[in-house]
Amino acid sequence: MLKIENLTANVGEKAILKGISLSVNPGEVHAIMGPNGSGKSTLAQVIAGHPGYEVTGGTVTYDGQDLLEMDAEVRAQQGIFLAFQYPVEIPGVSNAYFLRAAYNEIRKARGEEEVDPMEFLDIMAKKLKVVEMDEAMLQRSVNAGFSGGEKKRNEILQMAVLEPKLAVLDETDSGLDIDALRIVAEGVNKLKRPDNATIVVTHYQRLLNYIVPDFVHVLAQGRIVRSGGKELALELEEKGYDWLLEPAGASA
């Protein structure tokens, strides 16, 4: 489904991703872990098509197509979804309008009929249950004045509505109390299907108690330094990341 080969990317002059390779197949859950500043969000944003990151080398293929050639909106229309680490506030645009606009664009791209506001409300009623969110949320501006937890839930609500093929969750667990974490994780699990895949970016193991990964990768200083099964997450929980990092000065 997604094949990343030797990907390098910069912000300005600064190299952040220094050769990432990763393959994700339908039905799989991959966890990407690693210390702060290692490049996890950068990888997530590059997959989603953020124009502020410059890809300097490597390839990314998605369903056989060159992902890097696609604009962000086309990627979304083709089924890629990023739950942002820091969801963006958009005062003045209601959640309901925003979600319906996105939903209809994606349906259009799939060759499906667009839905009107009334039909959409019915659809929303079901989706809201997935993340245990109140209907009143729909009338509020997108993320504006939301608490940290509400923002994260709103990301999962969007994911529930848009039904992506490949979802990338960037630190969706950070800042959540245990109840919110459970709701978010259950939401993700409910949306899981054999033909879609999930990449979970986190630096805590605790989320992986709820969303069980098939593979765990450790990203450090812009490289994947270790990959393994779900037991790798437990090992990291115990030992931290230091044992995987290159000693200072060793990297050129």
Partner: peptide
């Protein structure tokens, strides 16, 4: 820019994104 990217990342096209954000600014 960030708001534009956020909206596009949900599949909303560039032109509609600009229109919505302009409207939102006023609203």
């Amino acid at each position: 820019e960030l708001a534009q990217f956020y909206m596009k990342s949900r599949g909303i096209g560039a032109e509609r994104t600009r229109a919505l954000l302009t409207y939102a600014f006023a609203a």
